[in-house]
C-alpha cells in the first residue's frame, strides 16, 4: 500500500516548489520585522491613537485563528485596496490582486506583533552599563546604537527570529485555501493525480521537518558561535 517509488517522485516534485515557499517565508519575515520595528517604536514612545490601535489589533489576533484572518483579508483587502487606489487616482483594478500578496500581507501582519515583542525584548536585554560605557567614551547616540546596542540586540534576537521563520513557513501552508501553490498545495495537486495521499502528505511532512531541524541547528550554532562570552 505504501509505494516507495511514488513517494520518491512526489518528494522530487514537491522539492521543486520549495524555493517558492522559502522565498515567500523570507519575504514574510523581512516585512514582518520591518513592521515589528515600527510597532516597537510606537509602543516605546507611546504615540497616542496608534498605541491603542495596536493594542486592539493584538487583541484581535489573540482570539482569531490565522485562517479566519486570511479569509477576512481575502475578501476585504481588494475592496480596501481599491478605495486607496481610487483615492490616489491610480487606475488599477484591485480584483486582480494576486492571492500571493494577500497571503504575504496576512501572515506578515500576524507575525509583526510577535516580531515587535522579540525586538523590544532583545533591546531591553542589552545591559544598560554598555550604553553608559559608550557614552563615557564619547560615543554619540547613533554611534552607540550602531556599534554597541544593535549588534548585541541582534545576537539576542536570532534564536527567536529563527522560530518566527519556522512559523512563517508553516503559515504558508494555509495558502492552498486561497489558491497559492506552496509545497503543501503542490503535494495535494500531485496526490490528486494518482490518489497517493498518504505518500504525498508524509513527504511534505518530511520536508517541513527537515527545514525545521535545519533552522534549529542553524540557530543553535549561531548562538554558540556569536554569543558574547
Amino acid at each position: 500500500m505504501f509505494d516507495l517509488k511514488a513517494s520518491y517522485d512526489m518528494f522530487l516534485g514537491i522539492l521543486g516548489v520549495l524555493p517558492t515557499t522559502l522565498l515567500l517565508a523570507i519575504t514574510i519575515l523581512v516585512l514582518s520585522t520591518l513592521l515589528g520595528v515600527v510597532i516597537a517604536l510606537i509602543q516605546q514612545y507611546k504615540i497616542p491613537v496608534l498605541v491603542q490601535l495596536i493594542g486592539l489589533f493584538k487583541l484581535f489576533l489573540r482570539g482569531t485563528p490565522m485562517v479566519v484572518f486570511l479569509y477576512l483579508m481575502y475578501y476585504a483587502l481588494p475592496a480596501m485596496g481599491q478605495l486607496i487606489v481610487s483615492l490616489l487616482g491610480i487606475d488599477y483594478n484591485m480584483n486582480n490582486l494576486s492571492p500571493v500578496i494577500i497571503l504575504v500581507v496576512t501572515v506578515s501582519l500576524t507575525l509583526s506583533t510577535f516580531q515587535s515583542e522579540i525586538i523590544r525584548g532583545s533591546f531591553l536585554a542589552v545591559d544598560y552599563g554598555q550604553i553608559e560605557a559608550a557614552h563615557s567614551l564619547g560615543y554619540s547616540f547613533f554611534q552607540t546604537f550602531k556599534r554597541i546596542i544593535a549588534p548585541q540586540a541582534f545576537v539576542h534576537a536570532v534564536p527567536d527570529f529563527a522560530n518566527s521563520f519556522t512559523v512563517a513557513i508553516k503559515a504558508t501552508s494555509l495558502g492552498f485555501l486561497i489558491t497559492v501553490i506552496d509545497i503543501f498545495a503542490q503535494a495535494k495537486i500531485m496526490a490528486a493525480q494518482n490518489f497517493r495521499f498518504i505518500e504525498a502528505f508524509l513527504m511534505v511532512a518530511l520536508i517541513y521537518w527537515g527545514i525545521g531541524i535545519l533552522i534549529t541547528k542553524f540557530a543553535d550554532r549561531y548562538e554558540n558561535d556569536v554569543r558574547i562570552k
Partner: peptide, 10 residues
C-alpha cells in the same frame, strides 16, 4: 521536533 515543525494542517 516533528510535531513542532510540521504545520497542523498536514
Amino acid at each position: 521536533s516533528f510535531a513542532r515543525s510540521v504545520p497542523g494542517l498536514i
